[in-house]
Structure formats: C-alpha cells, structure tokens
C-alpha cells in the first residue's frame, strides 16, 4: 500500500461490489464519486476503464464485448465497435483516442478501484471538450 502511504489524502482504494457479482467476460458500470467506471472480469484479471465512449459521448463502455487481439485483452465499444486495449485504455482502431483506465484489484472478495483525487480525472486525462458539465 505504498501509494496510500505516499499520498494518503489524494488516492484511495474504493470498494465497488462483491467479486462474484461480475459475470465472466462481461462488464458492469459503477458510480464512483460522480465518475462512471466500467468494470470487467476476464479470466483471473480485472480491468476498470471510463464508462464514457469517447467517440459518441454515451456512457456505455461497460456493455461492450470482451475479447482479444493478438495477446492484447480488448473491449469493443457497443455503439460503433472501436476496439480498445483493456490494460491501457488505448484505442487500437483510432489513433489518439483512449479510455481512462483505473487500477483495480480484488481483496477479501470485494472489487476495489483506486481513484486519484489529486485532480478531477476529467481535467487531466480526458480529451478536451467532452461535453460533461463537470469537465471544465
């Protein structure tokens, strides 16, 4: 928990739901401090990315199909099927497009996400002009 030690005020692991609430290879959406986060369980791995589809602006990424491209675990956007690297959030089909990805872990049967509260993620990590009222 070195992160907690270094910046106890700015970051925190937040429990989201029970691990067995996640269906294999399927996502759920979670609301964390006003942020919408999409959570996925793929095999033994957990992934968390922004729920907002950067292409359409709709909050739907949790409903995408999980898969792989080569060795990369992937998520396909449900509206127009752009494919993203689940580990980094990088879009494999459109250059310069990415999802915010969040550290996520399972502990004591609970899924936890690490939120960075040092600044609103929307300011630091989103593309500009994302249309969210809290995005400026």
């Amino acid at each position: 928990m070195s992160t907690d030690v270094l910046a106890p005020v700015l970051t925190a692991w937040t429990a989201v739901c029970r691990y067995d609430r996640l269906e294999p290879d399927r996502g759920v959406a979670a609301l964390l401090d006003g942020e919408q986060v999409a959570l996925f369980r793929c095999g033994d791995e957990l992934y968390a990315v922004q729920n907002r589809d950067p292409v359409t602006g709709a909050y739907v990424m949790s409903r995408g199909i999980i898969g792989s491209r080569g060795d990369v675990p992937t998520l396909a956007a449900p509206l127009h099927k752009q494919v993203y690297d689940l580990r980094t959030g990088r879009c494999l089909d459109l250059p310069g497009v990415a999802l915010v990805s969040y550290p996520v872990r399972e502990r004591d049967g609970l899924v936890e996400v690490l939120l960075d509260r040092s600044a609103p993620p929307s300011l630091l990590r989103r593309p500009p002009g994302n249309g969210r009222p809290d995005g400026r």
Partner: peptide, 13 residues
C-alpha cells in the same frame, strides 16, 4: 444533444 468529440468514424473491417 451532446457535443460529440470525435464524430462517428466507423471501424473498417
């Protein structure tokens, strides 16, 4: 109507 950041590119398959 929400402002759309990136338009609607289709992924070529």
């Amino acid at each position: 109507r929400r402002p759309v950041v990136l338009g609607m590119p289709e992924v070529a398959r």
